[in-house]
Simulated scan of single mutants.
Amino acid sequence: MRFALLSRLPQRRVLLWQELLSAALDGAPVLLGPPHDTPDPALREKVEVLFVADPPPGSFADWPSVRFVQGLWAGVDGLLADPSLPPEVPLARLKDPAFAGVMAEGVATHVLSLHRQLHRYRAQAALRIWQPLAQPQAAERPVGILGMGELGMAAAGVLASLGFPVMGWSRTGRPVPGVEIHTGEDGLAALLARSQILVNLLPLTDSTAGILDRARLARLPQGACLVNFGRGGHLVLPDLIEALDSGRLDHAVLDVFEPEPLPQESPLWEHGGVTILPHVAAVTDPRSAARIVAANAQRFLAGQEPDGLVRRDLGY
């Protein structure tokens, strides 16, 4: 008994993950942790690999023999915030090309929607106004992407194929074909100044928390739009509302919030300048992800370096 799955997802989703993981591990059993099951302590002590998706806080302490933790999602900020996660145990995030493709599809959907001004036409239709709007070409609408990992590169490729000039900002400044890359604070300022549509795909770390604040939003061109598919902690909500109310920003598409679900009393629900999505920009497909994380776990147990190892100081 070497594997266990920890998750607070609904039971039917957890059971699906359990079935797919076991099949990908050549039939090896996969224990379930609380809240779906509470294995005997003797069994828990045999578990070497934990697969995790939103595990209960503090639950890592119940698995004393764990040698490797594999996330089932691309983001690991929630895991890193759990003090029970042993600092010496390697942690890997999901790296699934299928997930990157889904995220790129989501980014393209909402960039095109903003570019073609569907939010304005919806507002006009609510007032029964029939009024065509001037429509710029895609080549006239620069798009900036914050975060140029697998997700950012996939999104940039799709947007470039649609004719948008694409800029990217990353920690490393690694070149990406067809994308104008920026790095550092000066590079961020330069990218923001030209981004008529800004897409955030950054991981949430100490250095990126609150990165979309009043000062940086003010650097965007007048009437720019924002797509936040990173994390809610990247965005300072009062500063966003101020930018929308002043007309500095035209519209914001928000898929992530802090906390989630978005509280009923949040002013965002009734703000005409905001499109709210319930964290659905890119959803992990267990069918592809289970094969990838199972192979990664087997790679670790065979003494090989697993893919997607997380630098805990950076969150990726």
Rank of each mutant, 00 (worst) to 15 (best):
L127F: 08
L127N: 14
R128S: 13
I129G: 04
W130N: 01
Q131G: 06
P132T: 06
L133G: 03
L133T: 05
Q135W: 07
P136C: 02
P136I: 05
P136H: 09
Q137T: 14
A139T: 12
A139S: 15
E140N: 06
V143S: 07
V143K: 06
G144R: 03
G144Q: 00
I145W: 03
L146F: 09
G147T: 01
G147P: 01
G147Q: 03
M148Q: 11
E150Y: 08
L151P: 00
G152F: 07
A154C: 01
A155V: 06
A155G: 02
A156K: 02
V158K: 13
S161R: 15
L162Y: 14
G163F: 07
F164K: 11
P165R: 02
P165G: 08
V166A: 09
M167L: 15
G168E: 06
G168S: 10
W169P: 00
W169H: 15
W169M: 02
S170H: 04
R171F: 06
R171D: 09
G173S: 08
P175F: 12
P177S: 09
P177H: 05
E180C: 12
H182P: 04
T183H: 14
G184T: 11
D186C: 11
D186R: 14
D186G: 15
D186A: 14
G187H: 08
G187A: 07
L188W: 02
A189K: 13
A193K: 13
S195W: 05
L198I: 08
N200I: 05
L202W: 10
L204W: 01
T205M: 12
T205K: 12
S207D: 14
S207G: 03
T208F: 10
T208K: 10
G210R: 10
L212K: 03
D213P: 00
A215R: 13
A215L: 14
A215W: 08
R216W: 06
L217P: 04
A218K: 01
A218Y: 11
L220H: 02
L220T: 03
P221N: 07
Q222P: 10
G223C: 10
G223D: 12
A224V: 03
V227F: 09
N228S: 05
F229M: 11
G230C: 04
G230A: 13
R231Q: 00
R231I: 07
R231W: 01
R231A: 11
G232I: 13
G232M: 13
G233T: 11
H234M: 02
L235K: 05
V236L: 12
P238V: 11
L240S: 06
L240P: 04
L240Y: 05
E242I: 00
E242S: 12
A243V: 08
A243P: 02
L244M: 08
L244T: 01
D245A: 15
D245F: 07
S246W: 09
S246I: 10
L249M: 05
L249G: 03
D250T: 10
D250I: 02
H251E: 13
H251Y: 15
H251F: 14
A252R: 08
L254S: 03
D255C: 03
D255G: 00
E258R: 14
P259A: 05
P261C: 10
P261E: 02
P261D: 08
L262S: 00
P263A: 11
E265S: 12
P267R: 09
P267D: 04
P267T: 09
L268C: 04
L268T: 02
